[in-house]
């Protein structure tokens, strides 16, 4: 407490600081629950995406035959997402495009938010685990929907005594997915805050641009892609040939 707006920034001057700060605590069923920097940064990112969506919606109300400007960009984005989903999921792609597209855009914006001085919400295990849990519920829903009794018998394939390993494999999916995203973004956040916090001022001119380009933009985009791709791969794996 008592940090004010400072903890929202990634690097305070002269100290290494990348932890999640508690901003506001309140009592909830006997335990103190905190409003943290992750929540605030996530709200900022969500507001950005929503305002952008509203602007695009306004623009698309009077869409032109020959697109130009913002309409052109949005049509390109939608086409890229569509081909991205349908190349990984085939004919089932159309149903899942909205979920996977939303997931991809949110994770991408979260990952590159370090570039704008926010602490990425995906560098909080709570965020990534919830995202992975949503995906996992979707995977299991499709498993039950398309495989029916095969959900149970599938656990005993190819040999009956492999049941525990198969069960652990099912349960470990959200944990490994969330840890992968969390670990990557957290590693970038830690490295940047170490760089900003420990080195003299002369080293902070110019050089961090390359670090940001790699750790925030490149790594963030790759991880958003991987998270969306794994979601689609797992779901279409459960759908099978149906």
């Amino acid at each position: 407490m008592g940090y004010g707006m400072m903890p929202m920034l990634l690097a305070a001057e002269g100290e290494v600081d990348f932890s999640i700060h508690h901003l506001l605590g309140y009592e909830f069923m006997g335990t103190t629950v905190y409003l943290t920097t992750s929540h605030v940064c996530m709200l900022i990112i969500m507001a950005t995406i929503m305002i952008f969506a509203l602007v695009v919606r306004r623009k698309m109300m009077h869409a032109e035959e020959v697109p130009s400007g913002l309409q052109n960009v949005m049509e390109f984005v939608v086409e890229v997402l569509e081909s991205f989903v349908s190349s990984a999921m085939g004919k089932h792609g159309k149903k899942y495009m909205y979920y996977v597209g939303t997931l991809f855009i949110f994770v991408l914006f979260s990952n590159i938010s370090g570039l704008f001085g926010l602490r990425p919400p995906t560098a909080d295990f709570g965020t990534t685990f919830c995202l992975a849990l949503i995906t996992w519920i979707m995977i299991q829903y499709n498993n039950v929907k398309y495989n029916k009794l095969g959900v149970i018998t599938g656990l005993f394939q190819p040999l009956p005594f492999l049941f525990p390993i198969n069960l652990i494999g099912e349960i470990a999916t959200p944990i490994s997915m969330s840890l992968r995203l969390f670990g990557n973004v957290m590693a970038g956040t830690v490295m940047l805050s170490l760089y900003y916090g420990l080195l003299p001022l002369a080293a902070k001119i110019g050089i961090p641009a390359f670090l940001h380009a790699y750790l925030d933009l490149f790594s963030g985009a790759i991880q958003a892609y991987v998270f969306a791709m794994l979601t689609m791969t797992f779901i279409s794996d459960k759908i099978g040939d149906n």
Partner: peptide, 23 residues
């Protein structure tokens, strides 16, 4: 490209477990 990136991401997981434990 997409297959390679997916495989690399899965291969990365064990290293990230180490990172999480270190953190």
């Amino acid at each position: 490209m997409s297959t390679m990136l997916l495989g690399q991401a899965v291969a990365e997981t064990t290293g990230l477990y180490g990172l999480v434990i270190a953190l």
